[in-house]
C-alpha cells in the first residue's frame, strides 16, 4: 500500500551535509499496524514525513497505492494527503478553535456541506469519547483528550492510512495505553492502515503487527513483532528490548554471582502463543529429575499473541540437563543456555 523506494534525504548545503535517510526501502501492507522504532536522530521522523511528503526526499520514490506521489503536482499532492490522516506528539491542534471546529477543519478545507460536517463530527466525537467536550478549547483539555481530538481530526476525511508521529510520547503511561487501545480499535473496526514511529518498545509490543528498527538513516531489522522481539539480531534492537526490561542489569548481576558448573546452568526460555499458559516446565522436570529456580520471569502479550520469558537455573546431572533442554525445546519457542 505504501512503498518507499531507495529513499535518500540529506540536509544542509554542499559544504556541510547530514544524511537523514540513506537508500531506504520499505513496504507497508494494507490493514496492518506498522511500527518504526529508533533513537532520536535515527531518521524516523524524516521517514514518517516522507510518506506524505511533508519532507521531500532528496532522491527516491514514494508510492501510495498505484501512485508515485513524488511525481505529483502540489495540487494533486494536496488531494492525496487527504487520504492520509496524521497525528502528532504535540497534538498540533488549532488553539483558536473549539474541539468541534478542530475536527471539522479538514472537512471545511474541502467545502463539505454543513449538515454532513455536523453528522461526521458527532460520530467522530462519539468514537473518541469526547461528546461532552465539543465546545471546549484545546487549552481546557488534558493531553490524552487533546490526542483524541487529533485522532478524530485525522479520521475526518476517511483516510486509508493513519500516520502517527510519536503520538503517545508526551502522555503518561496510563493515557498512552488508552490511546493505543483506541488506535487498535480504529485499525480493527475501520480497517485503516497505521504507520507509527516511536522510541518506546512498549508501544510496538502493544499494538504493532510488524516493526522496523531504524538506525543511522537505514532500516537495520524488520519483521513481525514477535520474531523481532524474541530474536533480535541487531545491536540497536537488543538495546530497545533491554530498555523495556527494567531489571535487566539487576538480573545480569544475579546471574554473574551464581556459581555455575556442569551440573548447574542458567537458561533463557521463550514461550510464544498458547504454550505460554501451560505447565510445561513443571511437567518436564518431574520426568527428568532436575531441580530448578526461577531467576526472572515475564508473561505478557504482543498485541494478541501471549508470550513469556523465563530465566531459570537448572541443577542436575549433565545428561538430565540435556534431556530437559531437548524436551523443553520441542514444546516452546526457543531455549538458550546463558551460562
Amino acid at each position: 500500500m505504501i512503498r518507499l523506494n531507495q529513499l535518500t534525504k540529506t540536509y544542509g548545503n554542499k559544504h556541510k551535509q547530514t544524511t537523514a535517510l540513506q537508500n531506504l526501502d520499505l513496504t507497508i501492507t494494507q490493514g496492518e499496524i506498522f511500527g518504526i522504532i529508533g533513537h532520536s536522530g535515527a531518521g524516523k521522523s524524516t521517514l514518517l514525513r516522507s510518506i506524505n511528503l511533508l519532507e521531500r526526499p532528496t532522491s527516491g520514490e514514494v508510492w501510495f497505492g498505484d501512485t508515485n506521489i513524488t511525481a505529483l503536482s502540489e495540487k494533486e499532492l494536496q488531494h492525496v494527503r487527504r487520504k492520509m490522516g496524521m497525528i502528532f506528539q504535540h497534538f498540533n491542534l488549532l488553539s483558536s478553535a473549539t474541539v468541534y471546529d478542530n475536527i471539522a477543519f479538514p472537512l471545511r478545507l474541502v467545502r463539505t456541506p454543513k449538515e454532513e460536517i455536523e453528522q461526521k463530527v458527532s460520530n467522530l466525537l462519539k468514537l473518541v469519547g469526547l461528546e461532552e467536550h465539543r465546545n471546549k478549547y484545546p487549552a481546557q483539555l488534558s493531553g490524552g483528550q487533546k490526542q483524541r481530538v487529533g485522532i478524530a481530526r485525522a479520521l475526518a476525511n476517511d483516510p486509508q492510512v493513519l500516520l502517527c508521529d510519536e503520538a503517545t510520547s508526551a502522555l503518561d503511561p496510563q493515557t498512552t495505553n488508552s490511546i493505543l487501545r483506541l488506535l487498535l480499535d480504529i485499525n480493527k473496526q475501520l480497517g485503516i492502515t497505521i504507520v507509527l514511529i516511536t522510541h518506546e518498545m512498549h508501544v510496538i509490543q502493544t499494538i504493532c503487527d510488524r516493526v522496523a528498527v531504524i538506525h543511522d538513516g537505514n532500516i537495520v531489522e524488520q519483521g513481525p513483532v514477535t520474531e523481532v522481539f524474541l530474536k533480535p539480531e541487531h545491536r540497536v534492537t537488543r538495546e530497545f528490548i533491554r530498555e523495556e526490561n527494567e531489571n535487566a542489569e539487576l538480573l545480569d548481576a544475579i546471574i554473574e554471582s551464581l556459581p555455575t558448573n556442569d551440573h548447574a546452568q542458567v537458561v533463557k526460555i521463550n514461550f510464544l502463543g498458547t504454550s505460554t499458559y501451560e505447565p510445561i516446565l513443571s511437567v518436564i522436570v518431574q520426568t527428568t529429575g532436575v531441580s530448578f529456580a526461577i531467576l526472572q520471569g515475564t508473561i505478557a502479550t504482543m498485541k494478541d499473541t501471549p508470550y513469556g520469558q523465563l530465566i531459570v537455573r537448572f541443577e542436575g546431572s549433565q545428561e538430565a540437563l540435556e534431556r530437559t533442554y531437548r524436551m523443553i525445546e520441542s514444546q516452546v519457542h526457543e531455549l538458550e543456555v546463558i551460562r
Binding site: N52, L54, Q78, H79, V80, R81, R82, M84, M86, F88, H90, N92, L93, L94, S95, F105, P106, L109, V110, R153, N157, L163
Partner: peptide, 11 residues
C-alpha cells in the same frame, strides 16, 4: 506544528 498539521491535511 499546527501549520504542518494543516499541510498534512491537504490545505
Amino acid at each position: 506544528g499546527v501549520i504542518e498539521a494543516a499541510t498534512a491535511m491537504g490545505a
